[in-house]
């Protein structure tokens, strides 16, 4: 087990394995996303309250889920790096941050676009939107620290530390924002917590969520592979690869 763990942790092995898996993942992600989009835009019946605007949910919800997941994955990579000092974990953390930021941003934008026809304004201090905004701040903090420390040997550990602090605070922040929201704006209806979504609505949503996960992994892998080459450019295997 440990042997395997460390072997996969070596950039060279990871590069080889990820290289052979990546095409399949990309194809699968493409199929899922295309199928999900066609299904969601073309075949799902319009919502009885919101009409066709509900279709933005199929981008908004997956990106919001992925935004949180990617922070969790960064935190997991951070723990691995701080405890075992596996360089690949540092690379993984560094590479996940911009993707996570992008997805959080996408969740906010789609939330705002969805909000316009539903609430009549682009922005509402809704608990979920506010939490997502805070998540964006946390992502931005991670990227800001990373870029401020670029070139320093301790940059990876400092960023990992920050992500861990963030992930411990995230539930507290989320809880407090929810509480703040109920305190100030009681009995407002929530978009994503419909009592029961009919299967013809949540099935394509599930496909989209899976598609987003696969897409995330593909982009993550690609970034990690690029960063590996960047960091290991002096090693013999990279030189042989390039020639």
């Amino acid at each position: 087990m440990w042997n395997w763990f460390h072997k996969l942790g070596s950039p060279k092995t990871f590069y080889a394995i990820s290289g052979s898996l990546l095409p399949y993942f990309c194809v699968l992600a493409g199929i899922m996303l295309v199928a999900g989009v066609v299904w969601a835009l073309g075949f799902v019946p319009p919502d009885y309250q919101q009409g066709h605007t509900v279709r933005i949910m199929y981008v908004h919800v997956p990106s919001a889920i992925l935004a949180q997941s990617s922070y969790m994955m960064m935190a997991a990579a951070g723990v691995v790096y701080l405890v075992w000092r596996i360089k690949l974990a540092d690379i993984a953390l560094q590479c996940a941050a911009p993707i996570g930021t992008g997805l959080t941003f996408l969740a906010l934008i789609t939330g705002a676009i969805w909000g316009k026809p539903t609430w009549g304004t682009w922005w509402v201090w809704d608990a979920r939107l506010t939490s997502t905004l805070v998540l964006l701040f946390l992502f931005v903090g991670v990227m800001a620290l990373r870029s401020a420390m670029s070139g320093k040997a301790s940059a990876g550990r400092a960023t990992a530390m920050l992500v861990l602090v963030g992930v411990m605070n995230l539930p507290i922040i989320k809880y407090s924002v929810d509480w703040w929201f109920t305190l100030h704006q009681p009995s407002s209806f929530s978009l994503t917590e419909k009592p029961s979504m009919p299967p013809e609505m949540w099935m394509p949503l599930l496909v989209m969520v899976l598609g987003f996960y696969l897409f995330f992994f593909c982009v993550w892998m690609l970034r990690i592979r690029t960063e590996i080459l960047n960091r290991e450019y002096r090693s013999r295997w990279v030189r042989e690869l390039v020639q």
Partner: peptide
């Protein structure tokens, strides 16, 4: 400036509870 970016989001729970 960096400290502000890193730390201010973490202050949100205290801010919410304190003002409430």
């Amino acid at each position: 400036v960096l400290i502000a970016i890193l730390v201010l989001p973490l202050y949100i729970p205290v801010l919410i509870l304190g003002t409430a």
